[in-house]
Design a protein around this nucleic acid. Structure first.
Lengths: 232, 232
DNA sequence: CGCGCGTTAATGTCTAGACATAACACTTCC
DNA sequence: GGAAGTGTTATGTCTAGACATTAACGCGCG
């Protein structure tokens, strides 16, 4: 009947009192010594529970001052998750397909930050055979030489990279743009129609791996995220 | 010269080898006994290091089978932080001001999910006196009755709510839209110019608090986020 | 009053053990 | 050959201590 370890139970008890509002931000939590007595266990066990809560940002611990319930971040910001296109489409119960529209290998421009040679790809992603995303992508052949031989008609570049070149850092940029002629044609929109552009740049150990610009028809696509501040 | 605790050093050593690609996903990490010998410390110390890595999702631990480097989530997704407008503007070193363009109190529509009565606000946010965001917002007077008396010319509605009504759940929706006539006028754009729209809906204990639609000129604004998967 | 300064209360780390538990490997018995 | 039991290995939890570190507190002194 043990089920859950004691340190988890202690952390859970405290988390519940924080979440319920019984212990408000700034409230000083009983000391480890008091909790040790209350639960009749060793201090390390209580300490582990508190460390876990601290690591998750629910409490702030300071020597001598004790442990207090954390204040939520001052300028509360929230998060939006950026999904991989294939899983996004399949998550909506649609059939995912893609078409490779263009592929060339060329020298990299200096300001692309992708080494000496790149492969440049244009891909159209479809959901139930309707255009969903128009993607332009550069892959550094210095960072990922195997990309030159990869078959991007079988697997879209994003998926291939995910499997072959795990990244260590990424930058995302979300903006709204009017569709240019080529994009509009690919997505079947009027010139200048509002579109959501997601730019993504990834590095591996400081070396640029890929740059991608993914353009979604504004009318058809939303990035949505539900978020609750207390759950890590 | 101690500086960093031993368990952190151990975890750091292992994290480095994972990040560098030396230990790829699926690689079996030395057992606690081996690491204990290598670092000449107690098993609990190694165990703590491994627990931390496990909690952060870098490794997967299984009894008897040992500890292996985790596979990155099948469909890797990343995160974008959504900042509060005022801190966003000030973070760019610009002067933040705002103008209240409209304020009415009216019965809530049923599908707004904001109770019986709402206050409806239109606010223009400026950065260095240039239009930056056009915001339409509804605040539930059932959830936040004090809002009826608040002075939204002194403090923008977002800031007021942050201070008076902490939320427990939020939903965000990012999309691209063409500016309608009113928005275009407010932001000084041409009709139909591409804009980034951020819709935000928040709840407190299941009760709807506010809904906001913030429209950024597409050309002037990007949501940017840098992200690295290994750092919590 | 306020400025140092020692005291001490709290957390942070670590140890050397102990027993529990899960899962795989192997043997035994039918 | 298969099912059931048995051993082995690695992680999971816990204990009862020890010493380190930090910073709030209070006291005394000028």
């Amino acid at each position: 009947m043990d089920q859950e370890p004691l340190h988890r139970r202690i952390a859970g008890d405290i988390e519940r009192r924080i979440a319920s509002g019984e212990w408000r931000p700034g409230f000083r939590i009983p000391t480890e010594a008091e909790l040790t007595a209350e639960y009749g266990c060793a201090r390390m066990t209580v300490s582990r529970a508190m460390s876990d809560l601290s690591a998750r940002g629910l409490v702030v611990r300071r020597r001598r001052a004790g442990t207090v319930v954390a204040h939520p971040p001052v300028h509360s910001s929230a998060l939006v998750a950026i999904p991989d296109i294939q899983s996004e489409v399949e998550g909506r119960g649609l059939a995912y397909t893609h078409r490779l529209l263009g592929r060339i290998v060329r020298p990299a421009l200096p300001d692309e930050g992708l080494g000496e040679r790149v492969i440049e790809l244009e891909t159209l992603h479809l959901a139930d055979d309707l255009p969903f995303v128009f993607e332009r992508r550069l892959i550094s052949l210095d960072a990922a030489p195997e990309a030159e031989a990869a078959d991007f008609t079988a697997q879209p570049p994003g998926g291939w990279l995910l499997a072959h070149m795990p990244w260590t850092e990424a930058e995302h940029r979300i903006s709204a743009v009017g569709a240019d002629r080529e994009t509009a044609a690919g997505l079947g929109l009027a010139d200048g129609a509002p579109c959501l552009r997601l730019e993504r740049r990834t590095w591996r150990d400081g070396q640029g791996v890929t740059w991608a610009s993914q353009i979604f028809p504004g009318a058809a696509y939303d990035l949505v995220a539900r978020f609750s501040p207390t759950k890590g």
